[in-house]
Amino acid sequence: MDYSIYLSGEIHSDWREQIESGIKESGLDITIYSPVTHHESSDEVGVKILGEEEKPFWKDHKAAKINAIRTNTLIQRSDVVVVRFGEKYKQWNAAFDAGIAIGLGIPLIVMHDPALTHPLKEIDGAAMAVTETPQQVVEILKYISR
């Protein structure tokens, strides 16, 4: 069975690459989607395309809306959404992506350190699986692809 997955969440570690590598090594037929993970490109897209802004709010507003076109479209195309919450930064956008997936009825796999269990209890409660490592995500994908 072939799947498409959307990988949302923190951008400061190589978890996406680990999942992609595990998928390839396992010979799974899975298409991977993700947001633009180059921080500056994502933050600057609005003003680069639509023009400069005096206030940071409007700069962020433009970028968020353009990024949302990509994110919403790719989440809707996905069979499964994987959201990774890192420890260093609050990933409000990742929580929002999880909510979109839940609202659309797309199965959600959440990945985070056990120390984040309490603050993420509502998201964990709505997820189909809560994992700690990229390898656990790959193992789930292998299982459902049989």
Score class of each variant (00 low, 15 high):
residue 48 K to L: 14
residue 59 K to G: 14
residue 117 T to D: 15
residue 70 R to H: 13
residue 95 A to T: 05
residue 46 G to C: 03
residue 96 F to G: 07
residue 139 E to N: 09
residue 72 N to G: 08
residue 22 G to L: 05
residue 32 I to C: 05
residue 54 E to R: 08
residue 146 R to N: 09
residue 123 I to Y: 01
residue 77 R to F: 09
residue 59 K to P: 06
residue 138 V to A: 06
residue 74 L to P: 02
residue 48 K to W: 09
residue 31 T to E: 08
residue 99 G to F: 11
residue 142 K to Y: 04
residue 29 D to I: 00
residue 96 F to A: 11
residue 46 G to H: 02
residue 3 Y to T: 05
residue 73 T to G: 05
residue 142 K to L: 00
residue 26 S to C: 02
residue 76 Q to K: 08
residue 20 E to N: 04
residue 41 S to T: 05
residue 84 R to A: 10
residue 133 T to E: 02
residue 87 E to N: 13
residue 72 N to Y: 08
residue 3 Y to K: 09
residue 66 I to K: 04
residue 130 V to F: 00
residue 34 S to H: 15
residue 128 M to L: 12
residue 14 D to G: 06
residue 50 L to I: 01
residue 65 K to N: 09
residue 16 R to K: 14
residue 5 I to D: 04
residue 97 D to L: 08
residue 66 I to G: 03
residue 91 Q to S: 15
residue 56 P to I: 01
residue 74 L to Y: 13
residue 77 R to T: 06
residue 39 H to D: 10
residue 74 L to V: 03
residue 102 I to S: 03
residue 100 I to E: 06
residue 28 L to W: 01
residue 22 G to S: 02
residue 116 L to Q: 15
residue 81 V to D: 09
residue 89 Y to N: 12
residue 67 N to H: 04
residue 81 V to S: 11
residue 104 L to W: 06
residue 39 H to Y: 14
residue 22 G to K: 03
residue 119 P to E: 13
residue 31 T to H: 07
residue 76 Q to A: 12
residue 138 V to N: 08
residue 53 E to Q: 15
residue 108 L to D: 13
residue 141 L to I: 06
residue 119 P to C: 10
residue 19 I to C: 06
residue 41 S to K: 06
residue 39 H to N: 12
residue 13 S to F: 05
residue 47 V to K: 15
residue 24 K to I: 11
residue 15 W to Y: 08
residue 83 V to T: 14
residue 127 A to Q: 08
residue 80 V to W: 13
residue 121 K to A: 14
residue 143 Y to V: 10
residue 33 Y to D: 09
residue 109 I to G: 04
residue 7 L to S: 01
residue 104 L to T: 00
residue 124 D to Q: 12
residue 135 Q to A: 15
residue 71 T to P: 00
residue 141 L to F: 09
residue 47 V to C: 06
residue 18 Q to M: 02
residue 117 T to S: 11
residue 86 G to M: 07
residue 18 Q to Y: 02
residue 14 D to H: 13
residue 132 E to A: 15
residue 133 T to R: 14
residue 121 K to E: 15
residue 2 D to Q: 11
residue 128 M to P: 03
residue 126 A to T: 00
residue 11 I to N: 12
residue 40 E to F: 06
residue 10 E to T: 15
residue 83 V to K: 14
residue 124 D to Y: 10
residue 145 S to I: 01
residue 119 P to K: 08
residue 134 P to W: 06
residue 42 S to V: 00
residue 139 E to L: 04
residue 3 Y to A: 01
residue 12 H to Y: 13
residue 48 K to H: 14
residue 89 Y to V: 13
residue 139 E to W: 07
residue 99 G to H: 09
residue 83 V to C: 15
residue 146 R to V: 05
residue 76 Q to C: 03
residue 99 G to N: 13
residue 10 E to S: 11
residue 33 Y to A: 04
residue 143 Y to E: 14
residue 71 T to C: 05
residue 94 A to Y: 10
residue 44 E to P: 03
residue 30 I to G: 05
residue 41 S to V: 01
residue 66 I to T: 05
residue 77 R to N: 14
residue 29 D to Q: 05
residue 127 A to W: 10
residue 121 K to V: 12
residue 89 Y to G: 05
residue 57 F to C: 07
residue 38 H to V: 14
residue 32 I to A: 05
residue 36 V to I: 02
residue 111 M to D: 00
residue 39 H to Q: 13
residue 31 T to A: 02
residue 5 I to N: 01
residue 3 Y to L: 12
residue 96 F to W: 11
residue 42 S to M: 07
residue 54 E to D: 14
